[in-house]
Design a protein around this nucleic acid. Structure first.
Lengths: 187, 187
DNA sequence: TTCGTTTTTTGACATTTGTCAAAAACTATA
DNA sequence: TATAGTTTTTGACAAATGTCAAAAAACGAA
């Protein structure tokens, strides 16, 4: 929990009262490897902070699992579309490692926003960060070649390669596993 | 200006005081076709609301212009990365049509956030909307074929095709102009 | 309208990436 | 350490998309 409070105060400082309120409202969740945090069709009603561990978001397309994002330590994770719109999620969230998470429901978070301007500010800033992170992934996906995307990954988030099977990484990069394997053999 | 106030109150209601503050802080900008709102290397210090007209964001890669987004009526536009991080923009923003915009500087906006919780809330909600919009574009870019992306565009934002040259649309979809032309000939 | 410019389409070919099947390498565990 | 299961690599070929050059069409100003 302290890790969560420390982390978010990199975004914006919090009063003691707001910190206490957050402590009261987040609930600890411990899950083993391969468990699901969410399965498609459910409405995702929680935002999670990943204290330790790793997970992936994936959806099914023509019988194949398409992994489109990963979460690691200090990431906020949720099925954003479902969480924001209250529509059923199209994706699954599955643990890649045994993990410790802190969960807060949308209702509780909304109540905190009403009570503490500073918490809503935090969220506004978090969205900024996540927006530009996504924007970068978008540009990579749309305008870079498969090799460039892999090299980017090597340079910017090498920890992913060490912790995640290559099959998941291939679809994270938007290429087939075979192509990824061939790219890797050229180094 | 009234259009701006109406539009954002779809997100979240505003007190009269907040509305007046916004009215005082946004400045009207009128620009002719082909003018630049921003050129690469500049720090983008403003957020704009596009009341009427159209524009594009593009950057240069190997001598080619890569258009990666468009803005139309009722869109908030800025170079998000630059606006958020205060780093020089890698992109240019150019008017596709003569346009009317409302501009607010980041400093002024920050001051409004401090004064009006409800305005910061509005921004938090706006980021939510823009986040899931971008997420959808990302999934399209990474996991859909060129034809699927074009069909998507036809169904979801047909106005783009009517108002923007095909060359820009091709790079918006992440394909070459020739490929786009061939896809179109199949309908 | 006509001329010059810009935009869009078409053709020929090259390159990248995907698919399917099989082999090889790795991992966990009995 | 032997074995079954999983993950990764390799090969052969197919499909999608890109590139370059030229033709055709559309557009705008005089």
């Amino acid at each position: 929990m302290q890790q969560l409070l420390n982390h978010i105060q990199n975004y914006s400082p919090l009063s003691a009262a707001a910190q206490n309120a957050l402590e009261d409202c987040f609930e600890k969740v411990t899950l083993p490897k391969n468990d699901f945090l969410l399965t498609e069709g459910q409405i995702c009603r929680h935002l999670y902070f990943l204290e330790s561990g790793a997970l992936r978001g994936f959806y099914n397309l023509d019988g194949k699992e398409i992994t489109h994002w990963f979460g690691f330590e200090k990431d906020f994770v949720t099925s954003f579309h479902s969480f924001i719109t209250h529509e059923p999620a199209v994706e699954n969230i599955q643990l890649l490692e045994g993990s410790i998470l802190w969960a807060i429901s949308k209702e509780t978070l909304t109540a905190l926003f009403n009570q503490y301007h500073e918490i809503e500010r935090l969220m506004r800033i978090a969205y900024e960060k996540y927006y530009i992170r996504l924007e970068e992934r978008f540009v990579n996906a749309q305008f870079k070649t498969a090799s460039e995307r892999y090299e980017n990954l090597l340079q910017q988030t090498p920890h992913i390669i060490e912790r995640v099977p290559l099959g998941f990484i291939a679809s994270y990069l938007g290429i087939s596993q075979e192509t990824l394997s061939r790219i890797r053999s050229k180094f």
